[in-house]
Simulated assay, not measured.
Amino acid sequence: MTDLPVHALTDRVQIPQDLPSPWVRITKRIVIALAVLCAVVLIVYIDRDGYRDVQEDGLSLLDCFYYATVSLSTTGYGDITPYTETARLVNVLIITPLRVAFLIVLIGTTVETLTTESRQAFKIQQWRNKLRNHTVVIGYGTKGRTAVAAMIGDEVAPADIVVVDENPAALERAKTAGLVTVRGSATDSEVLRLASAQHAKSIIVATNRDDTAVLVTLTARELAPKAKIIAAVREAENQHLLEQSGADSTVVTSETAGRLLGIAVQTPSVVEMMEDLLTPNAGFAIAEREVTPKETGGSPRHLHDLVLGVVRANKLIRVDDPEVDALELGDRLLYIRSADAER
């Protein structure tokens, strides 16, 4: 991917950056131009005896300003000229570079347009070389946006999240949220390589179609065999296809929403509590942590934390299962924490 043309790289990958307002940029250029002009005036005034004027009455400060103006603008009427070797050397070594700098400032917009792509491409290459253990979110629709919001609420840095999507409007929303975006279909392994999926810690598949989710999961698993892949599927009958494709975890969106709707008929407060548990940055939240040496041998039901389950050898075991009556080192506890208290 490093052999991609500059325009192809910058067209697909967008890194958020803070740009000053147009007025600030214009003011900055005017200040630089005036500084260059004043520097030339000062140099010419100090060495004014080395210049010849057609009137042969010496150079005044106004004459120096006049010479600096016509010289920097490359007009060069020739009525004031350097005639001593010192003055000519100063013109070659100092005033000529300042003239070039002055012209660059004048045509700064054009130069900036020509160099922006190159600088952005270099920045993208630097970013890709350093990017490791990040999360790739494929699809920035409702599911993708909610997943990103949950991760950021759980103190995941936006710089550690990369969004892949084909929809320009979705990518613009992700860019506004401060996320790096990659435009293209995630079924293409080259697009996933641009997002450095091969170095990702986790990959979230939040596409709008189940068949697309299966193909994306297959492509991602082939490219990143060690990454944790979490995929969303609309229909439960397609869940096994995602698991066979290499997904570590699957979420059936239609059935999950249906269950919540059914529960809300009799006990709407339960739904509110579930929403609270699924919001990591407010109220109560479900979290995971390692068992401490002091807790080994004890029962998870006797801990200060409200434990829901124990993860042992990558398998989730309910807290009331006799298998986890005695905790072991290496176990992980799934418990309820208070986000407000921790904050």
Rank of each mutant, 00 (worst) to 15 (best):
S249N: 07
A200L: 07
R183C: 11
E117H: 05
T116E: 08
L194I: 01
G178R: 08
R318L: 12
P22V: 01
V40E: 13
T69V: 11
T69N: 12
T74L: 03
H199S: 11
A68S: 14
A35D: 02
Q239C: 05
L242R: 08
A169I: 04
D63K: 05
A339L: 05
K315M: 08
H199N: 15
A264V: 00
I107N: 12
P20G: 11
P16C: 02
V44P: 08
A35E: 05
Q55E: 09
V31I: 12
R183Q: 14
I204H: 04
I95D: 03
I152Q: 11
Y51T: 02
R221L: 04
Q14L: 06
R52M: 05
E328D: 13
A287R: 14
A68H: 08
R332K: 15
N133D: 15
D210A: 03
V92H: 03
L89A: 12
P168W: 01
T212Q: 13
S71C: 04
E295M: 11
D320T: 09
S189G: 05
A195P: 07
S254H: 10
I30W: 10
T75A: 12
G50M: 08
Y83T: 14
R132A: 10
Y83W: 14
E328T: 02
L103R: 10
A213T: 09
A170S: 11
V271K: 06
G178K: 08
A157K: 07
A326S: 13
A121G: 04
E328V: 00
G58S: 08
T292N: 09
G258N: 07
D18Y: 06
A157S: 15
Y51F: 14
L9Y: 10
T113K: 09
